[in-house]
């Protein structure tokens, strides 16, 4: 038989490994491009986080219908994600925005604790997007939830100090958001390092654009980030987080237009393909919305990683 020249790259660096939750889950650690066993000794597949919200305002009805009513209670919803096979819970506290819901800081802390107690899964907590409110509530959660390592989502170039400091004080991780640009992504990690956040407390979110809405940009930005990290750029050697739930915002994914087939199946594929692209370009943690998409992606990722 023909002898095939060796094509394994010797990168010399790897992405950091970060324990989350109660320490029994670890993200990152890639030493090569995703799932290539001939160059990437890590058999770890990307973690999958299921999205849970404290308020259903603005949450797609089609998605809500997939959780058999359990979406009405965040802890129960989280439990369902665990049953489906999720590795993590992503809690989006939309209801803390008074124009959306009535969740108070106490409620938010209680919800996080409940999810932790019931699922024992790692949790990523995301605010409502209103700065003043997030600045109040997320630090409260950071300081009052202490026996599980949270990922605090998310800090941006313009506003990172408050939440990073709060996360550090509580021994939690931070998620650094940047807008589709390898240099900005790196800049965020530099800023956080300068601020005193250790590299093994940082996750990065370079913004995953969904299928049909700029996925190509994200796919290439992610690949470049991962290649640079493997080739030795220390400031990019942190686990990458990609949200795939935005796939539900794409008109083609959910429209009722005739000839496009069943929307529930279609949106599942829409999100699954977005997620596959994310993990094929380097994502270490996928934040997903739809249960069937999450299930598909988990099964494929396990198979690709060559273990379970």
């Amino acid at each position: 038989m023909a002898e095939i020249p060796s094509v394994a790259e010797k990168y010399g660096s790897k992405v950091g490994e970060v324990p989350v939750g109660h320490g029994d889950y670890v993200a990152g650690g890639a030493g090569g491009m995703p799932f290539l066993s001939f160059e990437n000794p890590s058999k770890r597949r990307p973690m999958i986080a299921g999205e849970v919200r404290d308020s259903l305002v603005g949450y797609p009805e089609l998605a809500a219908g997939m959780f058999s009513g359990r979406e009405k209670d965040p802890a129960d919803w989280a439990m369902m994600w665990k049953e489906i096979g999720a590795d993590m819970i992503f809690l989006r506290l939309t209801g803390t925005d008074p124009s959306v819901g009535t969740t108070t800081a106490e409620d938010a802390v209680r919800i996080v604790k409940e999810i932790d107690e019931r699922t024992r899964l790692p949790i990523m907590v995301h605010g409502c997007g209103v700065q003043e409110i997030d600045h109040e509530i997320l630090p409260r959660i950071c300081s009052e939830v202490r026996d599980t390592r949270l990922i605090v989502s998310c800090v941006e170039e313009e506003d990172y100090k408050r939440l990073s400091a709060a996360a550090m004080a509580g021994g939690h991780h931070v998620l650094a958001f940047s807008n589709l640009d390898i240099n900005l992504a790196k800049q965020m990690n530099i800023l956080l390092s300068d601020f005193g956040v250790e590299k093994d407390n940082i996750f990065m979110d370079p913004l995953m654009a969904p299928l049909g809405m700029g996925l190509d940009y994200s796919y290439s930005v992610n690949e470049r980030i991962r290649l640079s990290a493997l080739r030795g750029d220390r400031m990019l050697q942190v686990p990458m987080v990609c949200h795939t739930g935005e796939a539900w915002d794409v008109a083609d994914a959910t429209s009722d237009e005739p000839g496009l087939g069943d929307p529930a199946h279609r949106v599942a594929w829409w999100e699954a393909i977005t997620a596959i692209c994310a993990m094929m370009s380097g994502a270490d943690l996928l934040v997903m919305r739809g249960p069937s998409a999450a299930d598909m992606v988990r099964v494929y990722a396990e198979e690709l990683a060559g273990g379970s």
């Binding site: 100090k161 408050r162 400091a165 004080a169 005193g196």
Partner: peptide, 12 residues
């Protein structure tokens, strides 16, 4: 310190 320190280190 947890309150005051937070706003001190984030430079509020």
């Amino acid at each position: 310190i947890r309150e005051l320190g937070l706003v001190l280190v984030d430079e509020t």
